[in-house]
């Protein structure tokens, strides 16, 4: 494990904690896309099917369980918690996320490392994660104003992706066996989706003003 990978995992965890904190403290999920959160829950459930078949490390198993549990907790809050549920604006969150699920699964059927149940679901989760942020970005763009915690949530998620790319470069240079084209290419696509958001996030930070996305 290198420093970029660890920092990437930590910012990923931090992003989820920021979101949970926001929902818990304000009892509101305004500005949060339920669809993106459901896609992430599907991503983790599909990718970590290997929890039952492979053991890599205590750290790995622990983090997998944390990611599955926290993503399900967020979806539960938005769908079931009476106060949080009321703040959900489904008219803003209209992205047709099932299309992303269908397209990712189709792609996984054709592009995978091995034609097995686990490998297809693993590839599916990689493709779906790459695009899962789209409903959230569209929602933010629609509502224009982004509250601080939601902005930080997306910022930490983007930072996690950027750090994973550094991690791959590091591993590519230091580990002779390191080849994982599916994850790396999808990861670069995913990070590119954040570029626009990062640009406006940086501008607002530089001007010390509230984050606003152009319509």
């Amino acid at each position: 494990m290198n420093i970029f990978r660890l920092a990437g995992d930590m910012t990923h965890l931090l992003s989820i904690l920021v979101l949970l904190l926001k929902i818990y403290a304000t009892k509101s999920c305004s500005g949060v896309s339920r669809k993106t959160q459901e896609l992430y829950a599907i991503v983790f459930l599909a990718r970590y099917l290997d929890l039952f078949t492979d053991f890599i490390s205590v750290y790995n198993t622990f983090m997998k369980i944390v990611f599955i549990a926290s993503s399900l907790a967020i979806v539960w809050c938005i769908r079931v918690h009476p106060m949080v549920k009321r703040s959900y604006d489904k008219d803003l969150d209209t992205f047709r996320h099932y299309l992303l699920v269908a397209a990712s699964f189709l792609l996984a059927l054709f592009l995978h490392e091995k034609f097995t149940f686990l490998e297809i679901f693993w590839a599916f989760s990689i493709y779906l994660e790459a695009v899962a942020i789209l409903p959230q970005l569209v929602l933010l763009q629609r509502s224009g104003n982004v509250d601080n915690l939601t902005g930080q949530y997306v910022f930490f998620l983007g930072a996690y992706r950027g750090l994973y790319i550094l991690n791959w470069i590091y591993r590519y240079l230091t580990e002779p066996r390191f080849t994982r084209w599916i994850a790396c290419v999808s990861g670069v696509v995913q990070t590119a989706l954040y570029a626009d958001f990062f640009y406006y996030y940086f501008i607002s930070w530089k001007n010390n003003s509230k984050l606003k996305l152009p319509a």
């Binding site: 995992d9 997998k64 990611f67 490392e113």
Partner: peptide
């Protein structure tokens, strides 16, 4: 094997 080696990330 190679496949497992490729799955050590989260």
């Amino acid at each position: 094997d190679e496949l497992n080696y490729n799955k050590d990330e989260l």
